[in-house]
Design a protein around this nucleic acid. Structure first.
Length: 342
DNA sequence: ACTATTTGACCAAA
DNA sequence: TTTGGTCAAATAGT
C-alpha cells in the first residue's frame, strides 16, 4: 500500500544519505586538517538526517502511544510512551512497552584492571548513577543510571552499562525509555534519536556479526600520538541478549557525539557508531537494506509494544579514535544551563 | 550548603 | 528462592 511505498522511499532516502555520509567520510580522510573539519561537519549533517529519518521509521514501527505527559516541552517527535507515573512511589510496574535498546561501545582502553564504567564514551546526555549490581556470571558489575533531569522534568530515560566479559574495552550500554527532558537544546542536536534498524533474528542465543574487514579511514593519522594505540579493531559486532527475552534485534546508529567532541555534536562527532566505513560499505548496505526489506515490507510492520518486548540493538561505536585525533579544541556550548526550567 | 556516587537493603519477577 | 533492578542512607566531592 501506501505504507509500503513510503517505507521504500524511506529506505531509498536512507541509502542515499548513507552514501553521502560515507562519501564524505572518505573524502575527509584526504583533506588537510582545515578542510577536514568542514567535511566532517557535512558528514555529520548526513548523519543527523539519517537519524531523523530512521527515528521516524522507528517511531512508526513501534506505534508508541503518545500519551500526553506533564507538559513535555515540545520535543521533536518525542513520542515516548508516557508512563502513568501513578504514585510517585516505586512500584510502577513497567510492564508496558518496555523497550530496551542496547549498544556496544568501545571505551577508552581500560589500562588498569577494574576501573569503573567511567571509561565509557559520553553519549551526550547527563546521567546519574543510582545503583550497581553484580550480575550472575558476569565478571564486571552493572551500573545503573537515570537521567539527571528525572526530578526536574520527569524524564524517564534510563540506562545501564556493563563491561563485556571477553573484551573489557567494550561496554554494553542499554537504554530504556526516551528522554523527555530538554537537554541539549542547542542548535545542532539530533542526538536524542537513535536509528533503529531491525535485524532479522532467528536463532536465540548470541548473534554476533562481525565486520572486521574495515580498514576504516577514520583514524586520520596525523597528530600521530600514542593515543592511537587503542584504536584497534573497528569491528562491527552485533550481539546480545541473554536468555529468556525473545528480543528483536536492531541496529542502532547513534549520531550522537562522544565525549571529546562533546557538545559539538557535529564537529568531533564523527557520527559515532555509524560504522559503515569505507571499505566495508558493501557489507553495511547489504545488511542495512535487507533488514528493512525483510521487516517492513512484509506488511506486518507491527510488532512491538504489545507486551514486554525488548528491542536490543547493538552496535559498537568504534570511531572514538577519530575524535581523539584532532579534537583539540573543545568547544564549550552555551546551552548548558539546566536552570532554564525549574 | 549543595549535588553526585557508593553500597547494602529492599522488592518484584522469574 | 534467586536474581536483576531500585531505593536511600552514608559518604565523597564541589
Amino acid at each position: 500500500m501506501e505504507n509500503e511505498n513510503k517505507t521504500m522511499k524511506m529506505n531509498r532516502l536512507l541509502t542515499i544519505l548513507s552514501e553521502g555520509e560515507d562519501e564524505m567520510r572518505r573524502l575527509s580522510s584526504h583533506l588537510n586538517e582545515q578542510l577536514r573539519a568542514d567535511a566532517m561537519n557535512v558528514q555529520s549533517r548526513f548523519s543527523q538526517a539519517i537519524a531523523i529519518v530512521s527515528s521516524m521509521e522507528a517511531t512508526g514501527m513501534h506505534q508508541m502511544p503518545s500519551q500526553g505527559h506533564t507538559a513535555a516541552s515540545g520535543s521533536p517527535g518525542g513520542s515516548f510512551s508516557g508512563s502513568p507515573s501513578e504514585g510517585s512511589e516505586r512500584i510502577v510496574k513497567k510492564r508496558k512497552g518496555n523497550v530496551k535498546r542496547t549498544i556496544n561501545v568501545q571505551g577508552t582502553v581500560p589500562d588498569d584492571g577494574q576501573s569503573d564504567t567511567a571509561l565509557v564514551p559520553d553519549d551526550g546526555f547527563s546521567w546519574r548513577k543510582y545503583g550497581q549490581k553484580n550480575i550472575l556470571n558476569a565478571k564486571y558489575p552493572r551500573s545503573y543510571y537515570r537521567c539527571t533531569f528525572q526530578k526536574n522534568q520527569n524524564c524517564e530515560a534510563l540506562k545501564h552499562v556493563q563491561r563485556s566479559d571477553e573484551d573489557p574495552t567494550i561496554f554494553v550500554v542499554t537504554y530504556q525509555g526516551d528522554h523527555t527532558c530538554t537537554q541539549h537544546v542547542g542548535k545542532t542536536q539530533s542526538i536524542e534519536h537513535q536509528l533503529l534498524i531491525p535485524i532479522q533474528n532467528e536463532s536465540d542465543e548470541h548473534v554476533m556479526i562481525n565486520f572486521n574487514n574495515s580498514n576504516i579511514p577514520i583514524g586520520t593519522h596525523e597528530s600521530g600520538h600514542d593515543d592511537q594505540s587503542k584504536i584497534l579493531s573497528p569491528s562491527f559486532s552485533i550481539s546480545s541478549t541473554h536468555a529468556g527475552l525473545r528480543s528483536e534485534r536492531y541496529n542502532v546508529f547513534s549520531p550522537s557525539s562522544t565525549s571529546l567532541g562533546g557538545a559539538f555534536s557535529s564537529g568531533g562527532a564523527f557520527s559515532s557508531g555509524f560504522v559503515s566505513s569505507g571499505a566495508s560499505d558493501s557489507n553495511y548496505f547489504s545488511v542495512f537494506q535487507s533488514q528493512f526489506g525483510a521487516d517492513f515490507g512484509g506488511g506486518s510492520s507491527f510488532h512491538g509494544s504489545e507486551s514486554e518486548l525488548n528491542d536490543v540493538i547493538s552496535v559498537p561505536r568504534s570511531s572514538i579514535s577519530a575524535a581523539n585525533d584532532f579534537t583539540v579544541e573543545q568547544p564549550a556550548f552555551p546551552f548548558d544551563s539546566p536552570d532554564l526550567f525549574k
